[in-house]
Design a protein around this nucleic acid. Structure first.
Length: 580
RNA sequence: GCGCCUGUAGCUCAACUGGAUAGAGCAACGGCCUUCUAAGCCGUAGGUCAGGGGUUCGAGUCCCUUCAGGCGCACCA
């Protein structure tokens, strides 16, 4: 709809520029939708912006612009308002255009090609496979999956990836935890299960499964096991147990133990996300990254470029040379790489795979990590402008007023699966993206569950279902339905009808803006607006009237609403039921 | 102490990146079902945009500063 005004406005400015009245035309002309109805259907502040450069008063310049406008069938009236706004009033036919557009584009209505099929990678969730996903991860999952859908709708070639931290100490602690539960089940664990291991019930289940597969074959490793409770430093104690297990079991048996935990949890995570409508193109293994030598290569590249130094036996990356607060260790004194080292390699790999833009979604508690990753990319001669980090604030959970502790190791958490089962996938997906990612979120579980009755998602789905209900009604009453392009849209002259089509026009704009800002919540808010406008219209206007042309026109409008709601909900991974 | 994020109606959040009289949803109050689904609609009330300075035609939005909260500042991941 903006095009109806944008093109004449552009032409007018072009004329004025030729006449030397204004020096230049701004790159992106913007048109506002005024909040006040009296301010017209669209408004431009261009005269205010150019007044100084043109050396004229804003209102005078506005008058000159209006005088230069070519004649248009779409614009019925213009006016100069306030300090120099130009307000445009459009003909009803300008509103009607969107209805034909929806009919033509159907489930592609709202889509655009501004992405130019640019290859873009989106990495999200990437939770350590040390336990089931909890509700904090759910936010990242819903957010990432929705953003991927939105970016695809904007013509980007989006590749979703989950980085699996299947190497490193945390996985070893999981293996040790499984081993202890394995002994415990046979009454062979000599002391109480330690606090700093993974204590969730799922570890017991993994241990039981392990026992059915290998029987007593791993039990021998309990001999000369370090006495954990006797050791002062619990972390050192766990490390001692891990070292013991690796030595006693040998590479193959330790691998069986290690895999027992990893495979079980990872397949659980994958199934959980699939059921949540979150699909990945790839699961990228950190262990394979290490085994392929990519980490060695990345570190070697940094070293040979002269960005590293040795100190106290550790290898340091001079990240301060690229804006970081302090230099970072990439290889420890004991010879092991830090997590940061594999992350450098991983990010280098991303760009080596040809992505022109990489978006990482991290928990907001990792924000201090951003400068060092950027530093590493710069040091490797890569353009860190192509990396974008979206920080997703973790939900702080409450039950009523009671704060819920979220320690994975202690096994005290609400899982994503539990949440999905209680409130349903649709409500969970919608609820998660209802606010900006960087917004702190007090998430009251009791309230969230109550939302199964009051959740705004039902409000939107209901609007969609209402349209289909009318279509069913019409069929029952033997009233004819409009075929595509058959209705005479000129029947739609009521301000309420024009207001509703105006909301439909906004959808393609919101789709663009949500993609540009990486803000799925814009879609959610829009859908609520659209549903509200529809409910208002529905309550004020009878759709299934006797006069066939009017009935057809109104039904086509309503079908356009349903189509737009369905398209929007699809982007958020929420179903659009035809009946409720 | 340093850095990042946040502060808008009683609560949870928006505000098209500087536009006109700051908007929704819950919660509260008052209305609307013999007519297409009342999971809905209409109306009322609710605000020093944390405080203070500045920039300009114009500031919730940009700059400075104070206050309050969150997160981060490992040879952890």
């Amino acid at each position: 709809m903006k095009a109806f005004v944008l093109q004449p406005l552009q032409a007018a400015l072009e004329n004025l520029r030729r006449e030397g009245i204004i020096p230049e035309i701004p790159e992106n002309l913007e048109l506002d939708r005024p909040k006040q109805q009296e301010h017209g259907d669209l408004a431009s502040n261009i005269a205010l912006l150019l007044a100084k450069k043109a050396g004229r008063k804003p209102r005078d310049l506005a008058a000159a612009i209006i005088a230069a406008l070519p004649a248009s069938d779409w614009i019925v009236r213009t006016e100069i308002a306030g300090p120099g706004f130009i307000n445009f009033f459009l003909a009803p036919a300008a509103f009607h255009g969107v209805i034909a557009k929806i009919q033509a584009e159907k489930n592609q209505f709202g889509a655009n090609q501004q992405g130019g099929q640019q290859k873009l990678q989106l990495e999200f969730v990437s939770a350590n496979p040390t336990g089931p996903l909890h509700v904090g991860h759910g936010r990242g999952a819903a957010y990432g999956a929705s953003l991927a859908n939105i970016l695809r709708f904007n013509g980007y070639d989006v590749f979703c990836e989950y980085y699996v931290n299947d190497a490193g100490r945390q996985m070893d602690i999981l293996a040790a935890s499984v081993f202890m539960r394995y002994l415990e089940a046979a009454g062979l664990l000599p002391w109480a299960f330690p606090d700093n291991s993974y204590r969730g019930d799922y570890v017991r289940e993994i241990a039981a499964e392990l026992r059915t597969q290998v029987g007593e074959a791993l039990q021998h490793a309990r001999s000369e096991m370090p006495d954990l409770p006797a050791m002062e430093d619990p972390d050192a104690a766990i490390d001692a147990l891990i070292a013991h297990l690796k030595e006693r079991l040998g590479k193959d048996d330790y691998q069986i133990l290690h895999s027992a935990g990893l495979d079980s949890i990872l397949s659980d995570i994958r199934a959980d996300l699939e059921q949540f409508g979150v699909h990945y193109q790839n699961w990228y293994s950190e262990r394979q990254l290490v085994d392929s030598g990519a980490v060695d290569r990345a570190v070697a590249a940094l070293e040979s470029a002269g960005h590293c130094y040795l100190q106290e036996g550790a290898l340091w990356f001079k990240s301060t040379a690229f804006g970081d607060d302090k230099d970072r260790v990439i290889r420890r004194e004991n010879g092991a790489y830090t997590y940061f080292a594999s992350d450098i390699a991983y990010h280098a790999e991303k760009f080596a795979r040809g992505f022109t833009r990489v978006i990482d979604m991290w928990g907001a508690d990792h924000h201090g990590y951003v400068p060092r990753v950027r530093a590493a990319l710069q040091a490797l001669g890569l353009n860190d402008d192509q990396l974008e980090v979206v920080l997703v604030q973790f939900a702080i959970l409450y039950r009523g007023t009671e704060k819920v502790s979220m320690s994975t190791r202690a096994g005290e958490f609400v899982t994503l699966r539990e949440l999905r089962e209680e409130v349903g996938n649709d409500a969970a997906r919608f609820f998660y993206v209802l606010r900006r990612a960087d917004q702190h979120l007090d998430f009251d579980l009791d309230l969230a569950k109550k939302h199964s009755e009051e959740n705004p998602v039902f409000y939107i789905q209901y609007a969609h279902a209402r349209v289909y209900s009318m279509l069913r009604q019409a069929a029952e009453k033997g009233l004819s339905l409009p075929a595509d392009h058959e209705a005479d849209l000129e029947c739609l002259q009521d301000p309420r009808e024009l207001a509703l089509t105006d909301v439909l026009w906004r959808f393609p704009e919101v789709v663009q803006s949500a993609a540009r800002d990486r803000e799925p919540h814009q879609i959610a808010f829009y859908l609520r607006d659209l549903a509200a406008s529809f409910h208002t219209y529905y309550n004020s206007t009878r759709i299934l009237v006797e006069e066939t042309p009017l009935r057809h026109a109104r039904l086509i409008l309503c079908k356009g609403v349903a189509q737009t709601i369905a398209n929007g909900l699809r982007l958020l991974g929420v179903a659009a039921p035809e009946q409720m």
